[in-house]
Amino acid sequence: MKILLYFEGEKILAKSGIGRALDHQKRALSEVGIEYTLDPNCTDYDILHINTYGIHSHGMISKARKLGKKVIYHAHSTEEDFRNSFVGSNTISPLVKKYLVSLYKKADYIITPTQYSKELLQGYGITVPISAISNGIDLERFKHSEQKEEAFRAHFNIKENEKVIICVGLYFERKGIIDFVEIAKRLPEYRFIWFGYTPMYSIPKNVRDIVKGEHPENVEFPGYIKGDIIEGAYSAADLFFFPSHEETEGIVILEALASKQQILVRDIPVYAGWLKKNINCYMGKTQDEFTLLIQQIINHELPSTEEAGYATAKEKSIEEIGQELKEIYRKVADVNNKSESVVHQGNSY
């Protein structure tokens, strides 16, 4: 079996969660011995596994159909997580929804990261079979490393006993960036670092102004940083605070869990079934709740959730995801084989 992993705009999306999802897919398929190609001109594949929804996506599906190939669409995006992101996103989100539905309905099978996003897609009226499979996490990459932690501390000149709270995400209101800054104002004794980057021209003015300077001195926006520094930050920080309002999963949460970090998230439906409040994470809803929980976590007034969080990450390891993808591929390929068998039998009479 050979899979064509199609990812339009790979360079543009490399810094996003979707970009990391492709890396995880490649690793996962290699782990379970499934051959794959990234070459969109390839024709000797069995299944097109398409990850993006750019202008060339329709054409890729049409080409696959002409070749008699099966199509799996990886639904990383929904209308809900498009809203409150780019300039004008709320205005055009209904059109984005129609466009996504038009693409997703062309597939033989849909994969989406969580049960929550699966239910959203079904609510759109999509009747294509859907399975919820996590984007997965590379446990080895986020394994504790003194060298990486020191790289993080040195880069940001973190002093002994200084308390640091981090978040990783695009500069979107949806990601909770406004709450992140407002809560930092309440807690000037802590350092708040938001990793990630989005071009300034693409985000609304209120968010742009926050990033460019309308934030307290204890908040930093160092931009997109990869490698030892960010990986060290995940484990060396005192808390991973992710106040996002909407996600289809949240790969950065898996990265924090794999780093055995304490995490605090907003209590939203996407986490149902895999994040458990007060067990493998802490959850809040309001700025008052977040402020109190941050203080309690930093001061060790609440039990640690690190080990339970790591156990959750292990369940979503690259190896586990590879096995789940393999089963889906087999299921889709088996349908194809059965259809061919029926045609063959019909022609024999």
Rank of each mutant, 00 (worst) to 15 (best):
T312I: 07
R186Y: 07
V101N: 12
F82T: 06
I137T: 09
A64K: 04
T127I: 14
K205G: 05
E150T: 15
I61P: 04
E79I: 03
A154V: 07
T114C: 10
T37V: 08
V71S: 03
D267F: 01
K148G: 03
E149W: 00
K159G: 11
N218P: 07
K212Y: 00
S244F: 02
I3V: 15
E315R: 15
D138E: 12
S341Q: 14
K314L: 14
V128S: 12
I328R: 09
S117E: 06
Y190T: 09
L67S: 07
G9I: 08
E217Y: 08
I130C: 10
R266P: 02
R141F: 13
G59C: 04
S244R: 03
G322I: 00
P188H: 08
S93R: 10
I55N: 02
K105F: 01
M200S: 11
E79W: 06
G250F: 10
S85Q: 12
I111W: 00
Y349L: 14
Y45G: 05
K159E: 15
K260P: 08
D138Q: 04
I263W: 08
T286L: 01
Y224M: 13
N280D: 13
E149F: 03
E140C: 03
Y124V: 10
S62H: 14
I268E: 06
L302F: 03
T112H: 02
P129H: 09
S235L: 01
V87M: 04
Q261P: 01
I110K: 09
I294A: 03
D81V: 13
R208P: 05
T112F: 03
Q296W: 07
Y109I: 06
I166G: 00
K338I: 13
F86M: 14
I177D: 08
W194K: 01
E301L: 08
A14D: 14
I130L: 06
K338Q: 15
W274K: 03
H24E: 02
K15F: 10
L257M: 13
I253C: 05
V168W: 00
R65C: 05
E8P: 04
S131A: 14
I203E: 11
N299V: 00
A311D: 06
M1P: 13
K326P: 02
A333M: 11
A256F: 01
R186F: 11
Q262F: 04
N90C: 08
V168P: 00
F172R: 02
A308F: 07
I318D: 09
E306D: 12
I203F: 12
E255H: 12
A237C: 14
M200Y: 15
K338S: 10
P269Q: 07
C42E: 15
D81M: 10
I111V: 13
R174G: 00
V96C: 03
L5N: 08
G346C: 12
E327K: 15
P269M: 02
